[in-house]
Design a protein around this nucleic acid. Sequence first.
DNA 1: CGCATTGTTGACAAAGTTCAATTTGCGTGG
DNA 2: CCACGCAAATTGAACTTTGTCAACAATGCG
Lengths: 231, 231
Amino acid sequence: MKPTSPGALPPGFRSTFLDGLTPREIKAVLTAAKQERILPRQILQHEGDQATRLWLLVTGRVAAYRLSNDGDKLFLRWGVPGDTYGLATILREPARYIVTVEAVQEGFLLVWDLESARTLVLRYPSLSKALNSVVAEYLEGVIDVLGACAQNAKQRLARVLVESARQLGRIGREGIELELTNEQLAVAAHMSLFTASRKLSKWQKAGILTKHRGKIVLPSLSPFEKIVKDP
Amino acid sequence: MKPTSPGALPPGFRSTFLDGLTPREIKAVLTAAKQERILPRQILQHEGDQATRLWLLVTGRVAAYRLSNDGDKLFLRWGVPGDTYGLATILREPARYIVTVEAVQEGFLLVWDLESARTLVLRYPSLSKALNSVVAEYLEGVIDVLGACAQNAKQRLARVLVESARQLGRIGREGIELELTNEQLAVAAHMSLFTASRKLSKWQKAGILTKHRGKIVLPSLSPFEKIVKDP
DNA sequence: CGCATTGTTGACAAAGTTCAATTTGCGTGG
DNA sequence: CCACGCAAATTGAACTTTGTCAACAATGCG
C-alpha cells in the first residue's frame, strides 16, 4: 500500500478512533495529520519518552511491548491498520509513552503533533468518546494477555499462533502463512527460544503446522484454539 | 466510615471519576446514586455477566481479578476509595463486566443503574473525559502487573507486599500492618501457597518483616522495593 | 477442650531455562 | 555454479525454579 493523495485511506480501512465522526470531520482530522513511512525494526515510540505524537497506523504491522528492567521485551499486542498509538499524548499528564512500539512490516502512518492532537480533541468532542472505546479495547486486550500469562508454555505459544495468524497472517496455498522467526514467537509467547523450538517441532511432527526458515504455515487454527483452552 | 446523609462523602475523598466536575455537578451526580453496604467476600460484579451497574467505592477495599479457565483467580489490583468499577456499563456494547470484583474490607459504595449511568454521561460531557483518565489509569496499572508477570516468584511477592502496603496498609506501632493471609498474598502474587510461605519465612528470618496469623508487619518498604527491581 | 483455619516443612516431581554443540537454509561473491 | 559465511533452528544434558503432596504445628474461637 502506498500513500497517495493526502488523507487518502486504503479501501476497507476502519478505525475505532475515527468512529463517530462525520465524513466531513474525518476529512478535517486527517488533513491535520502528516504521513510517515515506516520500515521493519523501526522504533515508533519508546516507553518513558516524552509523548509528543499521536498516530494512526494506516498500513503495515507493528508490535507493542514493554521493556523489563533487564532489557527483554514483554510482548503486549500486534498493531494493525486502524490502531491508534501515542494516546498518552492526550490522556496523561505528564505525557509519557507507556509502551514501546516497533514496526514489523513496512507501511505508513498518520501523525499529529502534540499541539494539533490536543486541538483535535477540543474541537471534536466525539473524539473523546472514541478514545474511551479505544482505551477500553486496549485494556480488555491487555487483561486477556494477562490471562494467558497464567497458562503453561504450550498454551501460551498456541495462543500466540492463533492471535498472530489473525492479525498478521497471509492466506497462502497450504494455509495461513506467518512470517515470524522462532525468536519473535518466543518473545510474544514469553518463553525461551528453545522451548518455542521444541513445541513447534512437536506440532510439526503432529502434522498441524509446517515450518520454514522465518515462516510458519498453519493449515487450520482449530487445533491451536483447542490447545489454548485445555491441556 | 458510615454512610450518613445521601451524597455525603468522607473527608479527604478523591476520585478521578469526579475530577473535572463542578461541585454543583458532583452533587447532582451523587444524588442520582444509591448507597450500598458491602461486606468482605461479597462478589460485587462477576466477569461475563451483563453489565448493569456503574459504581464508585466510597469506603472499604475490594480486589479485582480475572477467573482462569480452570477456576483460579488471576489478581489484577486492589480497589480503594475513589475507584470506579462497572465501566463496561457505559463503555462497551454489549455491556458485560470484564473483571470480577470482590470486597475484602467492609465499606460502602454508590451505585448507578444502567439507565442513570448512561444519562449521566450524556448530561455531563466532562464525565467522558474523566472516564478517559480512569480507563487510562487502569490500563497502565494492568500493564504494570503484566510486567511483574515476567519476574520470578520472589520479586512478584515483594511487589505485592509493596503494592498492598500502599493500598491496604494501616500504620501501626512497628510499621505498616497488612491484614492478609498467606493465601491472599499467594493469589495476588500468582504463586502457590507454599512458595509464598517459604519466601515470607525467609524474609522474617532476615528481619525485614514480622508475621502473625492473618497479618504481616513491614517496618519499611525499601528492602522490598529493592528486591522488586533487582536480584 | 475440641475443632477449624492458617501456616510450616520436607521430599519429590514437573516445567522451563541455560548452555554448548551442531545442523539447516539461504544469500552472496568469487 | 559452488563454496563460504551467517542467521536461524535443533537437540541433548545439566540445572533451577516452582508446584504438589503429605504430614504436622500453631493459633484462635466457641
